[in-house]
Design a protein around this nucleic acid. Sequence first.
DNA 1: CTGAAAGCGCTTACAG
DNA 2: CTGAAAGCGCTTACAG
Lengths: 345, 345
Amino acid sequence: MAKRVSLKDIAKEVGVSTALVSYVLNNLKEGRIRKEIAQKIKDVAASMNYRPNQIAKSLKTNRTYTVGLIVADISNPFSSSLARIVEDEANKMNYTVIFGSSDENSEKFDKLIDTFLNRQVDGLIISPPANTAIQIQQLIDHDIPFVLLDRYFPEITASYVILQNHKASYTAALHLIENGCRSIGMINYSTDLVHLHDRKQGYLDALKTSGIDENRSWIKYVDIANDPAEIGNAVQELLDLPEPVDAIIFASNLIAVNALQYINRLPLKVPRDLAVITFDETSALNLFYAPLTCIRQPLEEMGQLATRILLETIKDKTVLSQIEVSPELVIRASSQKSSDYGLER
Amino acid sequence: MAKRVSLKDIAKEVGVSTALVSYVLNNLKEGRIRKEIAQKIKDVAASMNYRPNQIAKSLKTNRTYTVGLIVADISNPFSSSLARIVEDEANKMNYTVIFGSSDENSEKFDKLIDTFLNRQVDGLIISPPANTAIQIQQLIDHDIPFVLLDRYFPEITASYVILQNHKASYTAALHLIENGCRSIGMINYSTDLVHLHDRKQGYLDALKTSGIDENRSWIKYVDIANDPAEIGNAVQELLDLPEPVDAIIFASNLIAVNALQYINRLPLKVPRDLAVITFDETSALNLFYAPLTCIRQPLEEMGQLATRILLETIKDKTVLSQIEVSPELVIRASSQKSSDYGLER
DNA sequence: CTGAAAGCGCTTACAG
DNA sequence: CTGAAAGCGCTTACAG
């Protein structure tokens, strides 16, 4: 790289101190600097193509204007959609975002936090993997500004932005019941992630409310690695029950994609033979033949809130916001047996 | 944040100079430092929970171990898949990545480059929007290490990793012709992006080779903003031609998702009534009823190569690599009229 | 084997 | 209105 021009170079060129150059270029002490000299400095800076060195500035000010975003996997559309929203919101406040994928792995997660803190990020937005409450507690102990996104730990007093997960699946299950479903399955992840447990609980409570006996074999747990074969098997098992399931709720978009791909190869028709509801609404789901009823998370709101809360926290360490946003049940054909959708093909 | 511990604190605690601490913690001059004192320093550093300040280190060494990744839109699965690969490859070499989305907008793109350079990234991986050759040339003029990914400018001598785009659509079109298609449409973006022009040209050359007269109305151009209605219209127009098209090639995964969603609502059947091939293979496409023939880009290879070339360039500014990777035509049901797939439903 | 010192490029009290 | 100077937390020739 060609030798970069520094404040000192400009100062020498104009014949003033670096301090003055710094003041002028940062628009400080405006009224109190001679106009001509200020203009001269700006002109020279422009002509020399001056580019402030943020690293030096950060070292001095102890602010990097960088936030670290830790997601499960940036290539998962759910994560990347949030990333985009965080990016836009952070940029508005002149923040840049660095990202990392934890792969649901506690060690990788630790490493990311470590790296990001070494890089002096001003704060973190985190979708933590399961069983990382200790690490999160350490962030608190060290007074590191952060907010949890999408996931949380009930035992920890930290800011978070999550979905009303219980309500989401409660509403979904109730909707299925109202549409005549009686044996409703769920495919969920086998994990300690609390928000996924909440999704299960909402579903169970809806059954109970409706006087439907809970049936343990209606819930299938798959590894969070999203293995297509395993998810296909889970579907098949639900259909192979003595009394087969007449509806399935998918606890995530990736479960849905894999399950529906499997269902595509089956002779059965959605929703005629099987009603279906999925968490999340991603473009990946749009090509299924039956328009899918889904639980829409307000991603825009979630990403923006998380970012804003983080930036607030950076300014004022005493901020604590725990926000649960509302899901929206978007009702389409896939959940309504009464619809004739399954027949028309 | 609790007062951070610095080299100086450790030095004071142990009773040595900061220089020595720095040497020990960086494992420099290993054989030449008394073992006991080295161990003591390491122990104290650990017990004080020392965390090296990368910012200070960067200021001194002029290396941030950060790369900037500029994509069109991180929420586009194509971009986020590449981002994930770049992330992994960069992490291997202890690099962190900051990202930004240009939205195909030249001004946003400028701003991102500016921000990233101010932050002293060691280099950039860039999918440039149309008409940004000037900006790219400036990077060269300023000796900034970078590599273009997915897109390039033939008039500029810069490192890049792209697909053999011409070959990709040439092969695809030929395959359709061999399977009996005679009037083959293409939906592409109206843009100056050269790689998309290459995709068009490959398609046209395949027609010519096969003795099929090029028909201007077979190519529809849509805005790169991916408006679903506009893309649906493009499909309809191709079907409404006096001599309707019997196959369509989609020039990107997002065109495909939108077009297929539209096709889903039509009475026609793929491939019986219309054969179809798409660029890119994303999970978004898996739920279409007919398994899709697609042009698979070797994303893993592309992301890794781009990252490696960048890191090479950072070390040695004289590196210049222009790589065109091979597409793979993954043949499935959607492109084969002879297949009975379209009939079985 | 170890330390004193300069310096990376900024900001910012402080002094005048 | 302007400047000299200290200092952010490191690294690294240089000297001994």
